[in-house]
Computed example of a mutant assay.
Amino acid sequence: MRPTAGAQGVQGTGAAGPSGPQGAAGPTGTAGAQGVQGVQGVQGPQGDKGDRGDTGSAGAAGAAGAQGPKGDAGVQGPQGDAGAQGPQGSQGLKGDARAQGPQGLKGDAGAQGPQGLKGDQGERGPAGPTRDPIALVGEVQAVAKGTSGNYNGPVCPAGTKVIGGGFYQTATPSDANLLTSHPNTDANRWQVWLKNPAGAGDTGVRVYTICQPTR
């Protein structure tokens, strides 16, 4: 017969004794079964951006892609400058002469055309040169008393000829005597010949020439 346990005694209340020395470590026990995975923790704040890393080495060239579709024609560019003239080509060979063909028959005269319209009146032409005579009076020429001589009038200008003339004395009374008065065609002017008597006073004379335009 198995004996029964007795009742537990009252626990003593004495003071705890001093700790004993630590015992030697026991052998490692067998690993326990893996516990249940814990709940995922809350995501922490995003960290600061790290420094840029060094550039990596270039990769190997890829294979050439397929040719793309033909693009639209571009806008026409400006015309280029003219090129330099090329050298002159050599002269070609002279062709063979052909025999002249026979002369054709003379054609019939055509019918006379209708009379044309009357043309517009032309502009009035410039006035022609004047044909009026020109009188030229010479300077006073001295005629001393007791002298005689020829006194000439002005020479007619180019394009005119002498057709007349005369004279008059500057002193009063006019004592010089006229001997001749006539045109000098060689010199193209009028000429007079006067004689002033010795008993007369000194005088002067103006000879004038009358010229007629010739064109």
Rank of each mutant, 00 (worst) to 15 (best):
residue 1 M to N: 09
residue 5 A to I: 08
residue 7 A to S: 13
residue 8 Q to R: 15
residue 12 G to W: 05
residue 12 G to D: 10
residue 16 A to Y: 02
residue 19 S to N: 04
residue 22 Q to H: 14
residue 22 Q to A: 15
residue 22 Q to G: 13
residue 23 G to T: 02
residue 23 G to D: 02
residue 23 G to Q: 01
residue 24 A to F: 06
residue 24 A to G: 11
residue 29 G to D: 08
residue 30 T to R: 15
residue 35 G to E: 06
residue 36 V to E: 12
residue 38 G to R: 13
residue 39 V to F: 05
residue 40 Q to S: 09
residue 41 G to F: 09
residue 46 Q to M: 09
residue 47 G to S: 11
residue 49 K to S: 12
residue 55 T to H: 11
residue 61 A to P: 15
residue 65 G to Q: 01
residue 66 A to H: 09
residue 67 Q to S: 08
residue 68 G to A: 08
residue 69 P to W: 00
residue 71 G to I: 05
residue 72 D to Q: 11
residue 73 A to I: 07
residue 76 Q to V: 08
residue 79 Q to D: 09
residue 80 G to Y: 12
residue 82 A to G: 14
residue 88 Q to A: 14
residue 89 G to L: 03
residue 94 K to Q: 15
residue 102 P to T: 09
residue 104 G to S: 10
residue 104 G to M: 04
residue 105 L to V: 11
residue 108 D to S: 08
residue 110 G to C: 03
residue 110 G to P: 11
residue 115 Q to I: 05
residue 115 Q to E: 09
residue 116 G to K: 08
residue 117 L to V: 14
residue 117 L to W: 04
residue 122 G to Q: 04
residue 127 A to Q: 15
residue 129 P to D: 07
residue 135 A to F: 07
residue 136 L to W: 00
residue 140 V to C: 00
residue 143 V to D: 01
residue 143 V to P: 00
residue 143 V to I: 14
residue 149 G to P: 00
residue 150 N to H: 12
residue 150 N to K: 13
residue 155 V to Y: 03
residue 156 C to T: 03
residue 157 P to S: 09
residue 160 T to H: 10
residue 160 T to K: 14
residue 165 G to C: 07
residue 165 G to S: 07
residue 166 G to I: 10
residue 170 T to F: 09
residue 173 P to Y: 01
residue 173 P to T: 03
residue 174 S to I: 05
residue 175 D to H: 08
residue 177 N to A: 11
residue 178 L to N: 04
residue 178 L to S: 05
residue 188 N to C: 06
residue 188 N to M: 07
residue 191 Q to I: 00
residue 193 W to S: 14
residue 194 L to P: 05
residue 197 P to Q: 07
residue 200 A to W: 02
residue 200 A to H: 12
residue 202 D to S: 13
residue 203 T to H: 00
residue 207 V to C: 04
residue 209 T to V: 04
residue 210 I to D: 00
residue 211 C to Y: 00
residue 214 T to I: 15
